[in-house]
Amino acid sequence: MKKSLIGILAALTAGSSAFAADLYQPDPPAYIEAPEIQITESNGWYLRGDIGYAYNKSRGAEFYQGPFTAGLTDFRSTKLKGGFMGGVGVGYQINNHFRTDLTFDYMAKSNFRGSTFGSCGVAGNCVSTDLSSLRAYTLMANAYVDLATFGRFTPYVGAGIGGSYVKWANLRNTSCDASDPSSCDPTFTHGGKGGWRFAYALMAGASIDVTCNLKADVGYRFRQIGKGDMFGYDSVGGGPGRDKGFYSHEVRLGGRYVFGGCDTAQYMPPAEIPIQPSVYK
């Protein structure tokens, strides 16, 4: 009987221990917050520089055929070749999506070739060959919208307005008999003209973060320059002439140095949370 009671007590004691073990749950691990990155608005001054190539398209030209001709006559054909270009500028990043700058660009020598049709000294029906070139200096105020940022890439669109100083070289004009190209007038020279004209531009491209201060820029620009004086009178009174303006498709590669660009992202350390000591039971 005594042995039976001892066995029952042992069984109850073991069951109670097992039940207590089932009720015990270990403490969860201490919660540690992930580091927090606080992004602030990007703003500040920057300097920029660009190089590229402009594919030019003449919009035509017109001239006075002689001293006794009252009206203007259109060139029969005009062709303006492309030219290399470069530019510098200063700008301000207003926020993460909007910036403005003021730029000065120089377009190198672009050759012009045209022709006219009319009477000349050797025949009543003559075709001329007209050769010249131009250079352009453009001052423009621009605004851009940075659309979004994908890793290191930020696509943008923009527009600009300003003026271009177009300087034409002397134009050399040779007129020949349309039916006999070997029969020609002497070559006459017209003095080239220069002047400021209205200009505007549309841009699209992408900025690439090289460092927090330095951004590469790959872009396209469409620029149109208005009409203006092209050449003056020659020695026998022919001329003057005007061009009707031209436009350019430009491929550009450049860079921007942003002052204070490394301060746009700040690391905020997480608040310290004491780690609870482990409890052993």
Rank of each mutant, 00 (worst) to 15 (best):
D22L: 10
D22Y: 02
D22V: 01
D22H: 04
L23M: 14
L23Q: 08
Y24Q: 12
Y24K: 12
Y24S: 10
Y24D: 07
Q25F: 03
Q25L: 11
Q25S: 12
P26V: 06
P26I: 03
P26K: 13
D27T: 07
D27Q: 14
D27G: 04
D27F: 02
D27M: 01
D27A: 09
P28G: 01
P29Q: 04
P29H: 09
P29M: 08
A30H: 07
A30S: 13
A30R: 06
A30W: 02
A30N: 13
A30C: 09
Y31A: 15
Y31N: 02
Y31Q: 03
Y31T: 00
I32A: 09
I32G: 04
I32R: 11
I32S: 09
I32E: 12
E33P: 09
A34E: 15
A34I: 06
A34H: 15
P35F: 10
P35V: 12
P35H: 07
P35M: 09
P35S: 07
P35N: 11
P35Y: 14
E36W: 05
E36N: 14
E36H: 15
E36L: 14
E36M: 13
E36F: 08
I37A: 12
I37G: 01
I37Q: 07
Q38D: 09
Q38S: 09
I39L: 14
I39G: 04
I39R: 14
I39N: 12
I39D: 06
I39E: 14
T40E: 13
T40Y: 11
T40S: 10
E41F: 08
E41N: 05
E41K: 13
E41P: 02
E41I: 02
S42D: 04
S42K: 11
N43L: 00
N43I: 00
N43V: 00
N43E: 07
G44W: 00
G44V: 00
W45C: 00
W45K: 03
W45S: 00
W45D: 01
W45H: 00
Y46S: 04
Y46Q: 00
Y46V: 02
L47H: 01
L47C: 08
L47I: 07
L47Q: 01
R48P: 00
R48V: 03
R48Q: 11
R48W: 01
G49Q: 04
G49H: 05
G49T: 08
D50R: 10
I51R: 06
I51L: 14
I51P: 07
G52A: 08
G52D: 04
G52R: 12
G52N: 08
G52Q: 09
G52P: 04
Y53G: 05
Y53I: 02
Y53F: 11
Y53D: 03
Y53C: 06
A54C: 13
N56Q: 13
N56T: 11
N56K: 02
N56E: 09
K57R: 15
K57N: 15
K57T: 10
S58C: 05
S58A: 13
S58E: 05
